[in-house]
Design a protein around this nucleic acid. Structure first.
Length: 358
RNA sequence: CCCGCCGUAGCUCAGCGGUAGAGCGCCCGGCUGUAGUGUGGGGGCGCGGUUACCGGGUGGUCGGGGGUUCGAAUCCCCCCGGCGGGACCA
């Protein structure tokens, strides 16, 4: 793989890459790059996470030495799964199981548990150095979670430690690249802000897009939808269709897609089009056949997302036909993963599910 | 990563094209003469020097580098540092 091919692989389908120049320079220098993604085990794997999972796979394949951080303590701070560390660990194993089945060669990556980090006093030494180098206002600004919840009620103090831990994770692991959904931007930028002053590597930040909720309102990312649907029973009952889980059976996937928000001709905040873009067409060209009764124009075939978007925007592709086609391909995509994951970790899933449903 | 504000004496800041300033601090002196000390006690004298006050003095790569100008702390560009805000959604 030459330089341009590597850069293309690393940057494809990312919302942003900060900065491209730094990435190129590091690649040119020939040094072995280390990267990571930290995930919060918070319940069942949903398809929004597939986007970063696919990106993670790209980075592994590009030759970057990738770490995968199971952010169990972080999940504890965020009260995921009721703050039960045993459940959180089960959820972490479930995520690893999914990643294996998405085609990530687990033998090529280094899985790190937050437990390992926090048991080393060097970790806490870095955390305090980071804390000393920034103001309280700056930490608060790096907090994604705070915004909405603080309007509703009190936020406990542990939440302030969260961004510090994210920054410390990056420095402790001595990383060149930090990967995450766009919701991780604040933490990554904080790390970039203080890195040089403290003598650590300034991480290149790669952000993947977030999927719009199937209901169209907000985003299907870990911080909002999953948290609310999984850890909040009320939400789960009132909004059962907001996310598609990797463990959903075929019919559930089809129902969720068919019931989803999908405004005609519109690309913005259109979850179905986004699924097509980021999952179906993650790799192009791709054979994408829209089967359609002849009275609505008959079957159509496209090979790139750009073509699909063009015919959708023009109005010649009806949302119903888009939905049924996306449902079909999504089912095909998820089925093998689901089957293996269920085989792999059924006990974990039932543990997590039982928490959710109780 | 993006935007904004700031960077001038040790400190807080003013000055914003025409001789680099103020307050505070610091140093010296005056006034005062406490505690302590030279003594066993007291006085005197000396040492010492608190607080306030008075007088005098000390203060600078105007963050760095370029540029414009007869002339730059001041205007323009780049960089560094501090702070604040933004950054899909809320």
């Amino acid at each position: 793989m030459n330089l341009d091919e590597k850069v293309k692989l690393i940057s494809r389908n990312a919302v942003e890459l900060i900065t491209l120049e730094e990435l190129r320079n590091k690649l040119i220098s020939g040094e072995k790059l280390k990267g990571y993604l930290g995930f919060e085990p918070s319940g069942l794997f949903h398809i929004g996470w597939l986007i970063w999972a696919l990106k993670y796979r790209d980075l592994v394949n590009s030759g970057i030495e990738m770490y995968l951080l199971q952010a169990t303590w972080h999940a504890w701070i965020n009260d995921k799964l009721g703050g039960d560390l045993n459940l959180i660990r089960a959820a972490a194993n479930h995520v690893i199981s999914v990643l294996k089945n998405v085609g990530i060669d687990v033998s090529r990556i280094k899985v790190v548990d937050a437990e390992e980090l926090i048991s080393d006093k060097d970790y806490w030494s870095i955390l305090i150095k980071v804390a000393k180098s920034i103001s309280l206002a700056r930490v608060k600004r790096a907090l994604t979670i705070m915004g909405r919840k603080s309007e509703e009620g009190e936020t406990d103090f542990s939440k302030l430690i969260y961004p510090l831990m994210q920054v410390t994770d990056i420095f402790y692991l001595d990383l060149d690249v930090a990967l995450g959904g766009l919701d991780q931007r604040k933490a990554h930028m904080l790390a970039r802000d203080v890195a040089e002053k403290l003598g650590f590597k300034k991480p290149i930040a790669i952000h993947t897009p977030l999927l719009t909720s199937l209901q169209g309102a907000s985003r299907m990312d870990a911080k909002e939808e999953l948290d609310e649907t999984l850890s909040d029973a009320k939400m789960s009952k009132s909004r059962p269709e907001s996310a598609i889980f990797i463990t959903d059976p075929d019919e559930a996937i089809r129902n969720k897609v068919m019931n989803a928000f999908c405004p005609p001709k519109q690309t913005e905040f259109n979850p179905i089009l986004e699924i097509a873009k980021y999952i179906m067409f993650y790799e192009e060209p791709k054979e994408f056949i829209i089967e359609r009764p002849s009275k609505y124009g008959g079957p159509l075939e496209v090979t790139t997302y750009r073509e699909l978007e063009a015919i959708y925007v023009s109005g010649s592709l009806h949302p119903l036909d888009l939905k049924s086609t996306v449902a079909k391909y999504l089912i095909d995509f998820i089925r093998p993963i689901r089957e293996n994951v269920l085989k792999d970790s059924e006990d974990l899933i039932s543990k997590i599910s039982s928490y959710i449903s109780r």
